[in-house]
Structure formats: structure tokens, C-alpha cells
Amino acid sequence: MLQNAAQTYQSNQVTTATPADLTLMLYNGALKFIKQTKAALDEKDMVKAHEASLKVQNILYELMSTLNNDYDISKEFSKLYEYMLQRTVESNMRKDVEILLEVEDLFVQFRDTWKEAMQLAKRQG
């Protein structure tokens, strides 16, 4: 019963979120799955590491598909997301935590910048 309530809450969060909130959720989700990947690699659980890494890859695909390519900045984001995807795949294939740390750092930078932009937009709105 508690799990159903949590799932309902999460579902409501997603369906009522703004596009900006959804982007932030994707960044946070990617960071969560990177943490799970690192933990699974530490535990030598390659199946769990692979599954968590695939979730990071799926988030990157989602981020790329939501870009509005009418803006030059979107093209830059696309290049960065593609690079992060390539590195995530490489990390998954090699089970290389160092590569994963690079991707994690990029996600932290994206998330933190995005949060600042959201706060600035709220103050100006």
C-alpha cells in the first residue's frame, strides 16, 4: 500500500511539473542512477551496474529529444549530451568508474546551472 502511494505521488509530480521542473528531475534522476551504477560496480554486481547505466543513457536520450533546435544553445546542449552518452556507453562497456565520474561531474554542472536559471526566472517572473 505504501509503495502504491509513493508511485502515485511520483506520477502526480511528473504530470503536474513544468518543463523546467521535468528537466531538473531528469538531471537528478541521472545522478541517482550514476550513484547506483558506482555502488553496483563497487559490489561487483555487473548486472545491476549495467541496468543503472542504461537508465542514465535513457535519460540522455530523453534530454536530447526534448531540445528545441531553433536555438543555437540547443545545438551545443545536443553535442554535450551526445558526448555524455558516448562516455556513459563506454563506461558501461568497460565498467570504468573514472569515465562515469566525468559524466557525473557534467550532470552536476548542468543540474546546478539549471537550478540557478530556474531561480532567476522565478525572481524575474
Rank of each mutant, 00 (worst) to 15 (best):
residue 116 E to C: 00
residue 39 A to H: 11
residue 28 N to C: 07
residue 116 E to Q: 06
residue 72 D to T: 09
residue 70 D to L: 07
residue 45 D to T: 04
residue 57 Q to E: 15
residue 101 L to A: 05
residue 116 E to W: 03
residue 57 Q to S: 12
residue 54 L to M: 11
residue 34 I to V: 12
residue 106 L to C: 01
residue 69 N to C: 11
residue 76 E to V: 06
residue 39 A to E: 14
residue 58 N to L: 14
residue 70 D to Q: 14
residue 93 M to R: 12
residue 42 D to M: 15
residue 77 F to K: 03
residue 48 K to R: 14
residue 81 Y to S: 01
residue 64 M to R: 12
residue 39 A to M: 13
residue 30 A to N: 09
residue 77 F to G: 00
residue 59 I to V: 04
residue 112 D to N: 02
residue 66 T to Q: 12
residue 108 V to K: 15
residue 84 M to Q: 03
residue 106 L to S: 05
residue 53 S to T: 15
residue 113 T to M: 00
residue 99 I to H: 07
residue 34 I to N: 10
residue 83 Y to S: 08
residue 49 A to L: 12
residue 94 R to Q: 07
residue 60 L to C: 11
residue 44 K to S: 12
residue 50 H to M: 06
residue 109 Q to N: 01
residue 77 F to R: 04
residue 78 S to P: 04
residue 60 L to W: 10
residue 28 N to A: 08
residue 76 E to F: 07
residue 32 K to T: 06
residue 85 L to A: 13
residue 116 E to T: 05
residue 28 N to Q: 14
residue 81 Y to D: 03
residue 20 A to F: 11
residue 21 D to P: 08
residue 52 A to C: 13
residue 73 I to C: 09
residue 41 L to Y: 06
residue 29 G to D: 14
residue 92 N to A: 06
residue 64 M to G: 05
residue 32 K to V: 05
residue 32 K to C: 02
residue 110 F to H: 02
residue 30 A to D: 09
residue 28 N to H: 11
residue 93 M to E: 09
residue 87 R to D: 03
residue 76 E to R: 10
residue 87 R to N: 00
residue 46 M to Q: 14
residue 27 Y to K: 05
residue 80 L to E: 02
residue 44 K to R: 15
